[in-house]
Each structure stands twice: as C-alpha cells, then as structure tokens.
C-alpha cells in the first residue's frame, strides 16, 4: 500500500516537469556521471541504461535504425536533419576531445567528436583571439589540444583537471608564473568541486583554481560549465534557443544551475556525483530529478509522442 502511494507520488512528481516539455527541440547531455562513471582500467563503466537512452533520443528524431552498424556520418546527418537535436556538453579535460570521444565509442556509445562541446577547444579559441601564451597545468593527455599555440614566455596560466599532475611542485610553478605577471590571467577549464570515479570521489579543477585565486589574489576566468558563454556556444552548435533546450546532468551547480542561468531547463540525474542533499540545495532547484538518464529519456520521449 505504502509502496503504491510512493509510486503514485513519483509518477505525479515526474509529471510535473514532464508537463513543461512542450516546445523542447534539443537535449543537452553531460557525459561523466550521466553516461558513464570514469576511472578504472577500461577508462570507465557505462551507467546502466545510458547507452540505450542515447539511442532512444536519436530514434525519437526518427533519424535512423540502430540495427547493427549504421554509418556514423550518415547517422549524424540524419540527426541534424531531424527535429530533436542532441548535443553533449562536458567539462572533461583529462584527454583531448578526440581521445575522449574514442573512449566513449569503445564503451559502446554512439557519439561523434563534433557533437561534443568541451572546454579545451573553447579555451584555445580564446587564447588565440587574445594573443595569450599559456603555461599549462593540465593532464598530460590534454596537452596535444594546445599544440598549435605558442607557449614560450607565458603570459597566462591555463588550469584543467590535471589529477595526479596536481602536485605541490606543479602548482607552485603555476603560482610563480602568475605572481610574476604584472596582469595575472588565470583561465580555468571548469570550476567543479569534485567528480565521481569508479574508486570514489576525486577533487576537480575548481579546487585548485580556488587555491591559485587565493594565493595570487586573482579571479579566474572560467571556460566550461557553468559559464554562460560555454552553454551559449553549445546551443549555437545545436541551433536551438535556450528555452527550447533541456540539460541533463549530475552536477547541481555546474550543469543544472549553469543551464538555468542561461535560460534552459535542467534535470538532475541521481547518478555520478549526485548526493541526496543536492535536492535541498540552497541556491539551485532543478526543474526535475530523475533516477538516471534512461528514466529521463523515457519520460521525454513519451511526452513528446503524446
């Protein structure tokens, strides 16, 4: 009886945000913590149902058959031509976008490099525009993303999720570059606090960004979620307006809060770094909370077919 009541409440609660879905033309997905949990030997583990959920989103566009091996570029063209747009928006900076997408493909996800908005390519554009020569405090695997840039005699610091490269020595080197600049510029690829890997929660780039901000009395420029510019560029790639898009992520502040600031709707999934206290967050309230991506996509697809 109690179970039935609880289930009833859940359906009603689901219905609340689902009712607001009219006009949705695009779905934006966070990757880590939504599609898969990173870490471990294979580079991560898919979250149950998420591979199928991505497929379902594509199918809903009436794009293509998922049977066997659909040619990727054809699939991409078909999605582009369809109604519901799909885009991936990540703060992943532990690998180049190309390598990252290849890993996701290996894990079984149907995803293409040019469907992904990521901080490093965005930062590269900014650095070029402003003639900045970066000192990099990033993961070794991200370095190739900056190959085209002049890095001699640096006049700014770019910090990403460097993980094990966040040693005292490396942080101190970045600090010395910054403190030695007349006009210190710190560019941070995201401002996340932590993320979940298969072996537990790990500190994210925001923590070290804050450390450098405090040490040098500077304010970092954030490239990545929750920066408005970052969401806007992802929306531009999708060719939809903010109010026509819904963001699905596991980070209440950076995914949900950031997307809402930009005028989008946003759902939080109860996977990845999600913690129950997120639902009582003092500043950010998601438009809806769902158990996982599969559930979110189920509801969206059903609602749009009504």
């Amino acid at each position: 009886m109690h179970q039935l009541q609880a289930a009833g409440r859940a359906v009603r609660a689901m219905a609340e945000w689902a009712k607001q879905l009219a006009g949705i033309k695009g779905v934006m997905l966070d990757i880590s913590g939504v599609l898969y949990d990173s870490g471990g030997e294979g580079g991560g583990v898919p979250i149950p149902g998420s591979i199928e959920a991505v497929e379902k989103t594509r199918l809903n566009c009436g794009c293509y058959s998922t049977h066997a091996h659909v040619d990727m570029s054809t699939a991409f063209a078909m999605i582009k031509a369809s109604g519901l747009k799909l885009r991936f928006c990540t703060n992943e900076t532990q690998a180049t976008r190309g390598k990252f997408v290849a890993k996701l493909q290996r894990l079984g996800f149907n995803i293409l490099v040019n469907e992904v908005t990521a901080p490093a390519p965005a930062a590269c554009r900014i650095l070029k525009e402003r003639n900045l020569r970066p000192h990099l405090l990033v993961h070794d695997d991200l370095v190739p993303e900056f190959d085209q840039l002049d890095k001699a005699n640096p006049n700014c610091v770019v910090i990403g999720d460097a993980a094990d490269n966040f040693s005292y020595k490396n942080l101190n080197e970045a600090f010395r570059v910054l403190i030695g600049l007349e006009n210190p510029i710190l560019i941070s690829l995201g401002r996340g606090r932590y993320y979940k890997e298969t072996d537990g929660l790990k500190l994210d780039v925001g923590v070290y960004m804050k450390a450098l901000e405090y040490a040098c009395d500077v304010q970092a420029e954030v490239v990545g979620k929750p920066a408005k510019m970052f969401f806007q560029s992802a929306l531009a790639e999708m060719e939809v307006e903010p109010q026509q898009a819904i963001m699905i992520g596991d980070d209440i502040v950076n995914d949900v809060g950031g997307a809402q600031q930009c005028g989008m709707r946003a759902l939080q999934v109860r996977t990845g770094k999600y913690r129950p206290c997120d639902e009582q967050h003092p500043e950010v309230k998601a438009d809806g909370y769902v158990n996982n991506l599969a559930e979110a996509v189920d509801i969206i697809v059903k609602q749009l077919h009504k």
Partner: peptide, 24 residues
C-alpha cells in the same frame, strides 16, 4: 598564502586549505 624560500616564493598552507573549503 605563500612564504619565501631560498629558491623563491612558495605556496603556503592557505591555498590548500581554501581549496578543501571550496570542495566541501
């Protein structure tokens, strides 16, 4: 924030404390 070492300035405990405060 930092202190002076023979080889130049070096980060003190403050930045690491601030980072942990932010994370949690």
């Amino acid at each position: 924030r930092y202190y002076k070492r023979k080889d130049g300035l070096a980060l003190g405990p403050g930045p690491f404390v601030t980072g942990l405060e932010y994370a949690t």
